[in-house]
Nucleic acid binder design. Structure first.
Lengths: 294, 294
DNA sequence: GTTTCTTACGGGTTTCGTAAACATA
DNA sequence: TATGTTTACGAAACCCGTAAGAAAC
């Protein structure tokens, strides 16, 4: 029972093809194929079977891929204890994050961490809620958002950490008739045009809730993902928008008003594979993110 | 972090010398020494330091050796799940056992298991209580005995299974004056000569308890470990003896009488390293041993 | 025809044993 | 001197990339 073979199977289970595993591990498909063959010989079980042009894990292969997580977690635990013992935890942590949260969570934290020798490599990813979990294959930490409770879709086997609970406000031009209100209820918004987001993004569900509450469909004049773009369209008078309260860099002509009467908040959640979550540097980054959260 | 390096360090922690590790893993000391060097280079920490003619683990080395147990247990768990999945668990299980318990626990069980393709390789070991735990390095299961509760000395990090709780009786010749009693109290035994066992063996503590109870020292005419030998000496009239109740092959001229008034029983305990205890075949052997216990 | 995987085949690295050197009791 | 570990060096094993072949869309 070789731990490297288990890791290989887990990669294959996650990525689905020999070529993808090869690319992710900086090897050729040939090498991966040969390792699968020797693993199968060592274990005495067929691990993959042809499936169309590609391959598919057998039952035994899936079983072993699942077991790999425990082994890798145990190994990461040992590494973490060694790093703690030596006192100095330095290195690189790969973080993928949705931009609107990264903007207020990461700039300060990254400076603090860099001073301690921890290099945070950030990748921004503006995705539907279900898109964040798969990124954990390629990043140590993935910061996503979710409206449905404090969980995040497809993250069952991952370590989850809630970083913030952020209200979602209605954005509108400063000279809009509704801008005078302290807060807005769904009924106030009936008949308004919206600069919304595509299906699958958390904010889309809030607008749906408003529709359900008022009984009238909302008119979506645009469906955009970039909050800065949404803000620019709203400021220009195209319609109302939904923006997270801690968003930065909004135009002066824009105001945010709390939305009450429907659940209007998102959870900012950090995801990580169990083995990666054990690394000392990853835990340090998480601590700093929690400290940076409002 | 290579699992093989961790295993190497655990072996070294258990066996104490490069030569012993080499012998146990069927390699030369040269190979072991070189692996230690590469492990140290990979991990970036000194793992061993000279100590007299031999070596000693550094703090980091000990830390990693401890961590190896978790990794190996996780690996053994995966192997066990695979074996269960495939349905057929066959193979060899190495068992070390104290002879007096093995005599009634193993002969039947070994036949049953052999019929299922499980080969039990038995080694007998008549040792002081503290001698059994170290045997787990070389045997999958170690069956020892203990008087002090249901535990066994030095077995803190091992998996323990109580197989039986066996009364220790007084053995005496059939024509001995005390042979007429149904049961014997410590006061009945004051002044009798004894065929005893060396210090450290569980039965020695029972005789000590008798001495404490009566206030008079017992006279030890022999100190022997082999129960058959003890029985022969007792039958020949050299003195009284202490024998486990389920002992087999006793001479006809010998009778056993329960000893009451002092704790007179031993626990038969199976020990195993956590990773070995996970193996499906090892669990099967344990089940069979529990079934064979009185 | 393109994509994906697998199979020779050759080169580079790793691993291990023999033999010698080294250190300590 | 005897014991235990490490180093030098060569052979075997292993790992991986290139190139060619096979199967599916």
């Amino acid at each position: 029972m070789d731990a490297r073979h288990l890791t290989l199977l887990r990669e294959l289970a996650e990525r689905g093809s020999v070529a993808a595993v090869a690319a992710a591990t900086h090897r050729t498909p040939s090498a991966v194929s040969q390792q699968l063959r020797t693993a199968s010989r060592d274990l005495g079980v067929p691990l993959v079977e042809p499936d169309g042009r590609g391959v598919r894990l057998t039952g035994a292969g899936r079983l072993l891929a699942q077991g790999a997580a425990d082994v890798e977690t145990a190994l990461a635990d040992v590494q973490a204890r060694l790093d703690s013992y030596r006192g100095r935890a330095v290195g690189t942590v790969g973080v993928a994050a949705l931009p609107s949260a990264a903007a207020y969570l990461l700039p300060r934290a990254t400076l603090t961490l860099a001073a301690q020798g921890i290099d945070v490599r950030l990748t921004d990813a503006d995705l539907p809620e279900s898109g964040y979990a798969p990124l954990t294959a390629d990043h140590d930490l993935v910061i996503g958002h979710s409206l449905t409770g404090d969980t995040l879709r497809g993250s069952g086997h991952l370590v989850r950490t809630v970083l913030a609970r952020e209200p979602i406000d209605v954005a509108l031009p400063a000279d809009h008739p509704l801008a005078g209100r302290d807060r807005l209820r769904p009924d106030d918004l009936a008949g308004q045009p919206w600069v919304s987001v595509p299906e699958g993004f958390p904010f889309a569900e809030i607008l749906r809730a408003v529709e359900l509450h008022t009984g009238r469909p909302a008119r979506r004049v645009q469906e955009l993902t970039d909050n800065t773009l949404v803000a620019a369209f709203v400021a220009a008078g195209h319609g109302l928008g939904l923006l997270p309260r801690y968003a930065t860099g909004l135009p002066d002509r824009l105001v945010l008003r709390p939305l009450v009467g429907v659940p209007a908040r998102r959870w900012i959640v950090a995801l990580a594979r169990p083995d990666r979550a054990r690394r000392v540097v990853v835990r340090r980054v998480l601590e700093e993110l929690l400290a940076a959260a409002p």
